[in-house]
Design a protein around this nucleic acid. Structure first.
Length: 194
DNA sequence: CAGTGGATGCTCT
DNA sequence: GAGCATCCACTGT
């Protein structure tokens, strides 16, 4: 017997608190046009969190965060990189999970060509790196995660998850809202005691 | 391995 | 005009 195909995550998966969705995304598989891998690192940004782009209210850039869950919020970081989030919670709550690192499993050659690197460990180890490897840009801002070019597959077992402070922020920097797959070689940075 | 600084462009005040 | 949810190259141990 052929094992059952992994379930696709539907929009209902994201229609929960960002603090529930974020750790549940660890171990899920994210693909864009067939290129991607297993999510090993994420960060949660709640609308009541001063570090969240949505904290100051709706603007042109963060408008997608105020829309329905299960969609991609893509923004430009430091003028150079793209970063991708999954919008969570009921529409209007404006919370999202930043996807920070993948363990590459699909389309390694295309990732290497886009990144100009051979080392699999560095292809998707960081939010800007993974967007470059998967070809994610502003054109996917607002796109649903349960339709092409995205594929999002549920994990098939519950992994060991570690948590710690988020990276690269100055506000609410003490909150332990970064989640990672314990022991993964593909994290953007190691977890302190994990 | 740790720390520093430059690149680079858009958003918001 | 300031401030970034980053990355890379370079320095010094």
């Amino acid at each position: 017997m052929k094992p059952p195909a992994p379930a696709r995550l539907d929009r209902g998966f994201f229609d929960r608190s960002v603090h529930a969705v974020a750790p549940d995304l660890i171990g899920a598989t994210l693909l864009v046009d067939g290129v991607g891998g297993v999510i090993v690192e994420v960060e949660a940004y709640h609308h009541t969190d001063p570090a969240s782009h949505s904290h100051g209210g709706r603007t042109e850039r963060n408008a997608v965060m105020f829309g329905p869950p299960g969609h991609a919020y893509v923004y430009r970081s430091y003028g150079i990189h793209w970063c991708v989030n999954a919008v969570c919670e009921p529409a209007g709550e404006a919370s999202a999970v930043l996807i920070r690192a993948l363990a590459p499993t699909h389309g390694l050659d295309r990732m290497r060509a886009r990144r100009g690197l051979d080392d699999a460990r560095l292809l998707c180890a960081g939010p800007g790196r993974l967007c470059q490897a998967l070809g994610i840009t502003k054109t996917l801002d607002g796109a649903p995660l349960d339709a092409p070019p995205f594929v999002l597959l549920a994990r098939e077992s519950t992994p060991a998850i570690v948590a710690g402070p988020r990276i690269g922020i100055t506000k609410a920097a003490d909150k332990p809202w970064r989640y990672g797959l314990a022991g993964s070689r593909f994290l953007s940075r190691p977890f302190r005691a994990g």
